[in-house]
Design a protein around this nucleic acid. Structure first.
Lengths: 208, 208
DNA sequence: TAGATTGTTAATCGATTAACAATC
DNA sequence: TAGATTGTTAATCGATTAACAATC
């Protein structure tokens, strides 16, 4: 397996995973890069190039076994073992994520929600409890947390990320509208919803 | 203004807009591409190239006026006039978006929520009402809607998008976990949350 | 004016696509 | 075997960075 897989390739992997799941559900057991390229509207060349960053999963003259390929991609994406998450920011968005059943199915387990608002502390989403953010240092070390979901207002994001980093959390899923500066061994996936909405606005304006 | 602005450039515009807003709040009135590049961790060259797709907003020997530049970008992004949205899918995510005050401040006005679940029909988020999705054809034409936010389960996304397209909606903000096939004059910005989470999982796995 | 900094052209880098020998 | 399709190298395309003349 090559080093330095480009970010563009990683970004496409979940999409392959999704389409392969749909093919599998539809009872399709094998597929060529050519057929898949038509369904996914990318080039067959790109599919083969992307996959061969990780190994030769195909068979000449046959194509790819759908189930095997999906499984290989799930290994690559680290979906084989579960991940424990906490959500910091118990507002609407945080609670929406906490209550999203699909994540649980894929092995992303929300262990706790934290907030600083007394009106939500103590409430639950399903069986996930909401704690005071003051208790981060007490509770997080007991939960074996991999990933912190940041859904608090941007003003608190940097400080909270730093506290969580000190508790050993290296992976941040950041919904706060700010770019975090993290130490070199930590990393962050940003979901800036308003950036996405503005891109849509741009396209709307320029489509007339 | 050039034609065919690349998608990579458009994607960066909201980030420029955000940083310029922060600079303005901090009382900074002018900035050079060099200074901005240090703050944003991109190259000065890229900033100048990006902006010059839309016009010469800078002044030699001076740099850029922060307020003017922010304003120009808001024009480019189409943020000067308000946009009316509907949300189809009144679950946690849809209600989180409906209740997010920042969008309203930027001129994105949620006019109505639609759902097919009787237990949420009739409820409100702030003063936004939730209607039966059966009433789309009756209500949407009365609201001058620009953008439809799709937060329903993926099974209903394609059919709903088609109904909305027939009602004249061309812009879709899609949170459903599927890729929509839309007519050529319609377009869609996807927010696939689980794709983003899987990328984080990949990085976690490969960071050890 | 002299210094600073843009706008823009040219050079480089990286990602995508095409082509085809290898091989199932 | 013959046909199909991969894995991989080479060619192309597009995006980023560097350089510098123009000019405020």
């Amino acid at each position: 397996m090559k080093q330095n897989i480009s970010k563009a390739v990683i970004k496409r992997l979940p999409r392959y995973y999704r389409y392969l799941g749909e093919l599998l559900d539809a009872g399709i057991t094998r597929i060529s890069s050519e057929e898949l390229s038509k369904i996914m509207k990318v080039t067959a060349s790109q599919i083969r190039q992307d996959l061969n960053n990780f190994g030769g999963f195909g068979h000449q003259g046959y194509g790819y076994n759908v189930e095997t390929l999906k499984d290989e991609i799930s290994v690559i994406l680290g979906l084989k073992s579960p991940h424990n998450l906490i959500i910091v920011g118990g507002g609407n968005l945080g609670r929406a994520i906490a209550g999203y059943p699909k994540f649980g199915n894929r092995g992303f387990i929300v262990k706790a929600i934290f907030d600083n608002d007394k009106s939500v502390i103590g409430s639950r989403v399903g069986d996930i409890e909401t704690y005071s953010v003051d208790l981060l240092e007490n509770i997080v070390p007991t939960l074996d947390i991999d990933i912190a979901v940041l859904t608090m207002p941007k003003e608190h994001a940097a400080e909270t990320a730093e506290r969580l980093y000190k508790l050993g959390i290296k992976a941040f899923w950041n919904f706060a509208h700010t770019d975090l500066q993290l130490p070199g061994d930590a990393f962050c996936e940003n979901v800036h919803l308003s950036d996405s909405l503005m891109q849509l606005s741009y396209r709307l304006k320029n489509s007339l």
